[in-house]
């Protein structure tokens, strides 16, 4: 049975409203997109919805106690919760460089989680204040 679904494209800040005609998990027609990324998004969202995830992991002896990380590519929506759980188990040791792989192929998704900045070690001055 054909069905009309309304989606909002999240591929760019414009946020076009897409009208997608679907039958089961097959996309028949997309309307309302302003560029071809909109069509790709609709296909993806109907068949296998994915999201980019950014979070933090703990870092020992770092300038800050956390280092920000993100998935290199969007991961399946239904894995988000478990990916976050995996990240909670990680503890790095400073110094850490931008782009360091924190978890390779997280939960078998084929996607790596990497750091989004350098994290230098704590300075002597910080130690002084922590004492």
């Amino acid at each position: 049975m054909e069905e009309l679904k309304k989606l909002i494209c999240i591929s760019c800040p414009q946020g076009c409203t897409l009208e997608v005609t679907v039958e089961g998990k097959t996309v028949l027609k997309v309307d309302g997109e302003s560029c071809k990324q909109g069509i790709e998004y609709a296909e993806q969202e109907i068949t296998d919805p994915r999201r980019m995830i950014a979070s933090t992991v703990q870092v020992k002896n770092g300038y800050h106690p956390l280092v920000p990380v993100y998935t290199k590519m969007p991961i399946p929506k239904n894995t988000i919760k478990n990916v976050l759980k995996e990240l909670r188990k990680v503890e790095l040791t400073a110094p850490v460089a931008l782009g360091t792989v924190v978890i390779k192929n997280v939960l078998g998704t084929g996607i790596d989680v990497i750091t989004s900045r350098d994290m230098p070690t704590r300075t002597a001055e910080q130690d002084h204040f922590l004492k």
């Binding site: 980019m52 950014a54 933090t56 920000p68 993100y70 931008l98 900045r117 350098d118």
Partner: peptide
């Protein structure tokens, strides 16, 4: 940007979707 760890930065300038800290770096 240091605290904006989510993606969405740099699409115009770098044609890449970066987290805030990466864009700043």
């Amino acid at each position: 940007l240091i605290q904006c760890i989510h993606n969405g930065f740099g699409v115009e300038i770098f044609k890449e979707d970066l987290p805030g800290p990466s864009y700043a770096q």
